[in-house]
Nucleic acid binder design. Structure first.
Lengths: 190, 190
DNA sequence: CGAGGTGTTGACGATGCTCAAGGGGAGTGG
DNA sequence: CCACTCCCCTTGAGCATCGTCAACACCTCG
């Protein structure tokens, strides 16, 4: 479980490409699926100094069998992860560079807001442009140009690890962002 | 639950783009997640004449609470769906058109093989090129040209709803395909 | 026989990639 | 305290992959 910091999960392809699959913020349990899938099919790394808590499988398994309410909560969390993955398919498959990056920023903002890690529309964002490129399937050069365009349009400010959304509505419009997929309604469970 | 036929789940964007998120073959339960997520975040449709079985939520919920072994099995199935979604992110994000289509065909082949719906390396594939385009984030024109290239290289034959893989190893190489993510090992549960 | 969906082809254009180079900030070691 | 280095960001030029538009052939079905 991420206590503090920032993680991401990713896959490497034989040709050396890295595809980032998700970012993990405090409160999330990135590797819950290893409870049920024997073989891990992706890797996990920190992208900022982080504090991680390790929870033994056995402890969780006992909990799950004895308290189905807890199983429901964890199960739901995993399904939300899956919903986010689906939205990432949409992102890389159907949006252009400008919208993809906008979408990623909207997602990060709402995820961080849900755990109280935003100040107004600002948040600590230690992600590099290279990482954005690997997450969105773009080149770093093109990410850089798109980010500058977002800045030029006064949608965001983003320097030295701090990102400020200047016009959230406009950013969501550019991203064709629809909050539903994050299923935040009763996510207080996290 | 899909008894017979072919389904797909998809999302529509405000600009009219359709992104297909997954294909569902017989034996799969496409909408299991609605057990735990109040709001459906994508749509579901048939892409061939199909037979569907509907299972009431209540019936499943009772089963889950009383038999944790069954919960484990269904939970695992959902996690495999999530693993497939992650691989689709890789597909749309990091592979070129030729590899993307190859990868989709490899996936379909192995999924169908697992439920005994292949004959050698042939399988019934009612998917149109337009649907492949919507699944891979490509245009139909480009899909068509890439499919012709696959045919020209003698990797596949694909006509009138029947696809035959002529050289599975070559197709997997072209796709940078790694079977692990399907977690077929003990998927006999389906 | 007509209509609509699917596959196919050509020409042109645009989005995004590659290669290459340089600038600035932060940490390290002398 | 200053040089040095490394990582990250930035910029320009040329190019490739892939998209758009438009037209046509084929098959199936009513």
């Amino acid at each position: 479980m991420v206590v503090e910091g920032f993680l991401c999960s990713y896959k490497m392809l034989p040709d050396g490409e890295r595809q980032i699959l998700s970012f993990h913020v405090p409160g999330e349990i990135p590797d819950l699926q290893s409870l049920f899938l024997e073989k891990m099919d992706h890797a996990l790394t920190t992208i900022a100094p982080s504090t991680i808590a390790f929870i033994p499988h056995e402890a969780v398994n006992v909990l799950l069998e004895q308290h189905f309410r807890i199983a429901r909560i964890l199960w739901r969390e995993m399904l939300i992860d899956a919903a986010i993955s689906r939205e990432w398919i949409v992102n890389t498959g159907s949006r252009d560079a400008y919208a993809r990056i906008s979408h990623l920023l909207c997602e990060l903002f709402y995820k961080l807001q849900a755990v109280g890690l935003t100040k107004g529309t600002s948040f600590n964002c230690p992600i590099t442009q290279t990482e954005v490129a690997d997450a969105t399937g773009l080149s770093t050069v093109h990410v850089n140009r798109s980010v500058q365009e977002l800045r030029g349009n006064r949608l965001i400010e983003w320097e030295r690890g701090t990102c400020t959304i200047l016009d959230l509505q406009a950013l969501e419009d550019a991203a064709m962002f629809d909050l539903d997929y994050l299923h935040l309604a009763s996510a207080g469970a996290a």
